[in-house]
């Protein structure tokens, strides 16, 4: 009995080790290359430890331009997606109507649609019907189409736990609709709103498929990376990857920490 249990443990341990190796080794490998002085982005031959690729990256005007665009797009997406997501969440949790399930299906459909379709359809609509040529604006709208769905789902999951008698109590004590919203409803939803701001920002910052088709000739950071990776690959890209990975790790740790604290609060 005991030996079968320990065999089971070993198998599970090996499986996990393999899985995480599969997940992380490519990333570690990519990171190490960023510090190799070799012109060709490979570990071998090792030509010495260097930060020069970071310097090279920093000299790239195009990269800075793309980065700036990425920030503009991401902030705009947040500004569009979070308020609309809130509206959608309120619609689906607070109002009772027959077509609710159908509307719900339509509002989450962008998540289940391939990103390239959203990019194409947004581009076609704005470029040819509204005379807005593809650019940052169409990229923002294309991304916001599905990012709003994510925000809505996030806010909804919290709104569903809201005890409506609290709003009634506030009304009963003389509060107006506006006061109830700002003093009771919004504070309750705040954690979900903050999470959806973070989520929307990251989703936008990372987006490639939708942006590629919607953005025309402009570049966001992922588009810039995509273009670079298709042409000549320099270790400067590895340097950029290292920066991305570092930021992601910081982001993931803070997010996970917040989420746990939130969970503990609920229990």
């Amino acid at each position: 009995m005991k030996s079968s249990k320990s065999i089971f443990r070993i198998v599970v341990g090996a499986y996990l080790a393999l899985f995480f190796a599969y997940m992380f080794l490519p990333l570690i490998f990519m990171t190490i290359i960023a510090f190799n002085a070799n012109e060709v982005p490979q570990i071998t031959p090792w030509k010495g430890f260097t930060f020069m690729w970071f310097g090279e990256l920093a000299k790239d005007e195009q990269m800075w331009k793309a980065l700036l665009n990425s920030f503009i797009v991401a902030f705009s997406v947040v500004a569009i997606s979070v308020p609309i997501g809130l509206g959608g969440a309120l619609l689906l949790t607070r109002l009772q109507f027959k077509a609710r399930d159908f509307v719900y299906g339509v509002l989450v459909s962008p998540i289940l649609t391939p990103g390239i379709i959203l990019g194409i359809s947004t581009f076609l609509f704005w470029d040819s019907y509204m005379n807005v040529p593809g650019g940052l604006w169409t990229a923002i709208l294309g991304q916001a189409t599905f990012i709003t769905s994510y925000c809505m789902l996030l806010i909804m999951s919290r709104a569903q736990r809201f005890d409506l008698t609290q709003e009634e109590a506030a009304f009963d004590l003389g509060a107006s609709h506006r006061q109830v919203f700002w003093k009771i409803t919004l504070p309750f939803l705040r954690p979900a709103l903050i999470s959806s701001v973070a989520l929307a920002f990251m989703q936008s910052f990372d987006n490639y498929n939708t942006t590629l088709f919607a953005i025309g000739v402009e570049q966001t950071l992922p588009i810039y990376i995509g273009t670079k990776l298709r042409s000549f690959i320099s270790p400067a890209m590895n340097a950029l990857a290292v920066v991305f990975i570092a930021l992601t790790i910081i982001g993931a740790i803070t997010y996970e920490y917040r989420r746990r604290r939130e969970l503990i609060k609920i229990r």
Partner: peptide, 13 residues
């Protein structure tokens, strides 16, 4: 919010 009543709820709220 405009009635001169105040309620104590079954679940307190």
């Amino acid at each position: 919010n405009n009635r001169p009543t105040a309620m104590i709820f079954q679940n307190l709220a």
